[in-house]
């Protein structure tokens, strides 16, 4: 479904992604894990076509953005970093707007609206302007906006950032449910996220995927059985070792 081959992206002279390769299929739940500045957001932006790679290619269902942008974007649901939304609209108006852009008819829209509002507990704020929402509700509205057209591929950049523990649990539960029908790719720097979701983990450090494994596989890389140690070994220590080699 998603195929990333040799992705390279530079900003000015700094290499942010350095030959990223991975593929993912429908029904997978993938956590893109990595320290701040590892290139998670850039990779997500490349996958959803907001940025173009300097080298390499992204193919979605065998198609590239150069030739089939609109067709690909129709299959994608994307929540960018910091959840940018049209703040002058109410939650309902925003969802309506996205529904119309994706060409949903009234029946389809009503069905997904109910599903999304149930799953993300958005009913209390449906008529409220986004500008007046709390951080948690704004984030959940962003997820709802990405999901309202039932995308085949859902890409969420730090979806639980700023949520309280109860909200995090509810969102994670909902994401697991979504992954039964779609490919869900989320980015985070929180280890507990990958652990709770029990997902496939792509660990990104210094613009490279250093591990493509499961949570159990990641834990096996640690010295003391904790994910934190595995994370440290694979990101910080590896980087230091590589620098020493150089």
């Amino acid at each position: 479904m998603i195929e990333a081959q040799g992705l390279i992206k530079n900003f000015d002279r700094r290499r942010v992604l350095d030959g990223v390769n991975f593929s993912a299929q429908s029904g997978e739940l993938i956590t893109l894990l990595g320290p701040n500045g590892a290139g998670k957001t850039t990779l997500m932006r490349l996958i959803c076509g907001y940025l173009a790679p300097d080298a390499g290619a992204v193919r979605i269902d065998g198609r590239s953005y150069e030739t089939s942008r609109t067709e690909i974007l129709r299959k994608l649901g994307y929540m960018p970093e910091n959840t940018p939304l049209y703040k002058e609209l109410t939650v309902f108006e925003h969802l309506c707007l996205v529904g119309r852009v994706f060409g949903l008819d009234k029946k389809e829209f009503s069905a997904t609206l109910e599903e999304v509002c149930d799953g993300l507990e958005l009913y209390p704020v449906l008529g409220q302007k986004i500008q007046t929402l709390s951080k948690g509700y704004t984030r959940r509205t962003g997820i709802a906006v990405a999901m309202i057209h039932r995308p085949q591929i859902l890409i969420l950049d730090e979806p639980t950032e700023g949520l309280d523990p109860n909200q995090k649990t509810a969102v994670r539960k909902y994401l697991r449910r979504c992954a039964e029908k779609a490919l869900v790719l989320i980015s985070t720097h929180l280890l507990e996220e990958a652990e709770t979701l029990d997902s496939r983990v792509l660990l990104l450090a210094d613009g490279k995927i250093c591990t493509d494994t499961t949570v159990a596989g990641l834990r096996a890389c640690s010295r003391d059985g904790t994910l934190a140690d595995a994370f440290h070994r694979l990101t910080a220590e590896k980087t230091i070792a590589e620098e020493n080699e150089r």
Partner: peptide, 14 residues
């Protein structure tokens, strides 16, 4: 400025 360009550009709109 508001970052909504990223949202807009990832809509399936020509």
């Amino acid at each position: 400025k508001n970052g909504t360009l990223e949202l807009l550009f990832t809509f399936p709109v020509g």
